[in-house]
Design a protein around this nucleic acid. Structure first.
Lengths: 93, 93
DNA sequence: CATAATTAGGGTAATTTGGGAG
DNA sequence: GTTGTCCAAATTACCCTAATTA
């Protein structure tokens, strides 16, 4: 079961999300994303978790391995993403 | 499961932490991780200790939003947990 | 004993960390 | 409330050659 337990560096995650590494660090500090710390203090993120966050909730099994991005969903109209119950963690008011 | 008393090579530990073998060696040199030296001078690390350090924060609790996903494992607690004998790591500064 | 792969050692660049302010 | 950039410091990654391991 290779769920992709590879660990990613903050820079890798930042590049995936198109944000600054500092922002990724803040997500980890806020507990919004799991992080593994090296004995030296640096953080490592799980590829599977990052992918899950990137996909929102698409539980598709796509094992791509190429730099190219898979073509968009050949499906019909855009599903929109109305649901996205998200639920997650936000709010905190 | 065995407590993992096997000895791992720097390369193995490096792959687990997604770091360079040199970095693992540096951890051992800094006393951040216990290391066993071979008569030749190479270092070996304990699987149990490495796993203990690998325990990251992660999102242990379910933080999902999918109504159809609930791999809740109410199984009995794991008896006989790894006692991690002797391993008194914890490098504090 | 010989070969291939890994590891150790030193040194320098790149990345990451943490806090502060916009 | 979140994100991006500034700073200084620490940690990590890659370069090399020699020794050890398998």
């Amino acid at each position: 079961m290779d769920t992709g337990d590879r660990l990613l560096t903050p820079g890798e995650v930042a590049a995936l999300f198109r944000v600054d590494p500092k922002t990724v660090t803040r997500w980890a500090a806020a507990g919004r994303i799991g992080s593994i710390r090296t004995p030296g203090g640096h953080r490592r993120f799980r590829e599977s978790e990052v992918r899950a966050l990137l996909e929102g909730e698409g539980v598709l099994e796509d094992l791509e391995e190429g730099p190219e991005n898979r073509p968009r969903n050949t499906g019909p109209a855009t599903p929109g993403s109305p649901g996205s119950p998200g639920a997650g963690n936000m709010g905190m008011h």
